[in-house]
């Protein structure tokens, strides 16, 4: 049994990472909850954003936390256009065909990155990367704190958008009752596109936040897609609060598993959790209908 400070450190860093996970999963959850689109390219979108951050750092010496803002906008527009110009055409296709469409996009993006940048890991080295805050016996990485702060801000903005703006409210109405929304004359195609744009923007912000926490390789995509699904299922498909709580749960349990068992076994915990939850409570911790 490791000493208490180690455990406390793991919990803290797990919580911080979990917040970023939560933001990433929030994008997936919003897209599923509103558009009913199972975004199998979620992890690939994040990897794409991470390569953007690496490129901006190496080419323009831009700090990833600055790139983040631009990435959010670029991915937001990209997501909007992708949904409006392309995915909306397939809304009425069977579920498995829509999943396959996203799997095709995932394969193209992931291997396109491999083609463009090769298999080697890339990373960003900022001046503060190895710094940490000292809280008594606890050491907390600065980049992890900043990443969590960025994720909190992005999440708050998203929540404010969905609660306060007219478009946000319309999107929530659309998620509750798509047919009713259509009958009421809401511009459903536009709302779907906005949602996908926001989902893509969230995952882009998460990617830029993560870029200093892990090495970037083209093959990251599927792992993070699955992780996002785990989190969303744990939290309940379509529930946004659930996505955040799920992110925290997974972040902490991974960190603890890494410490108490072995680092390589940490994702085993998430998948084990997924299996148990799918079987015991398939609607997730927060159940359907709440967001």
């Amino acid at each position: 049994m490791p000493a208490l400070p180690y455990v406390a450190n793991a919990v803290i860093s797990g919580t911080l990472t979990g917040i970023v996970y939560g933001l990433m999963a929030l994008g997936l959850s919003a897209i599923f909850g509103v558009v009913r689109q199972v975004n199998f390219a979620h992890g690939e979108l994040m990897t794409l954003a991470m390569y953007g951050a690496v490129g901006a750092f190496q080419g323009l010496a831009l700090d990833p936390f600055l790139t983040m803002i631009a990435a959010a906008m670029v991915f937001g527009v990209f997501g909007y256009v992708l949904q409006r110009g392309f995915l909306n055409r397939f809304i009425h296709r069977p579920e498995h065909l829509r999943m396959l469409l996203m799997i095709a996009l995932a394969i193209i993006i992931g291997n396109g990155l491999l083609l463009a940048f090769g298999p080697d890991a890339r990373s960003v080295q900022t001046s503060y990367q190895l710094d940490s805050f000292e809280l008594g016996p606890l050491l907390v990485d600065k980049v992890r704190v900043y990443a969590a702060i960025a994720a909190v801000v992005a999440t708050a903005l998203l929540a404010a958008f969905f609660r306060l703006t007219l478009t946000g409210k319309a999107i929530r109405a659309c998620a509750d009752n798509p047919i009713g929304a259509r009958v009421a004359g809401l511009p459903v195609a536009h709302l779907y596109a906005v949602t996908f744009g926001l989902g893509a923007a969230s995952v882009a912000v998460a990617g830029c936040a993560m870029v200093q926490l892990i090495d970037v390789t083209p093959g990251l995509g599927p792992g993070y897609t699955l992780l996002a699904f785990v989190i969303v299922i744990v939290g309940g498909l379509g529930s946004m609060v659930g996505a955040l709580l799920g992110g925290l749960a997974i972040g902490v349990s991974e960190a603890l598993a890494g410490l108490l068992i072995t680092p390589s076994a940490k994702s085993m915990v998430s998948f084990g959790l997924l299996v148990v939850l799918l079987l015991v409570r398939p609607q997730g911790l927060m159940g359907p209908g709440r967001r």
């Binding site: 397939f90 065909l97 396959l100 469409l101 799997i103 095709a104 996009l105 995932a106 394969i107 193209i108 992931g110 291997n111 396109g112 990155l113 491999l114 083609l115 090769g118 298999p119 083209p218």
Partner: peptide, 19 residues
């Protein structure tokens, strides 16, 4: 020798066929 080229082709085929 471009690793990934073959998979990109697979992805494109899947995309076109699904559409």
């Amino acid at each position: 020798d471009l690793p990934g080229a073959r998979q990109v082709v697979h992805g494109l085929v899947l995309l076109l066929v699904t559409i």
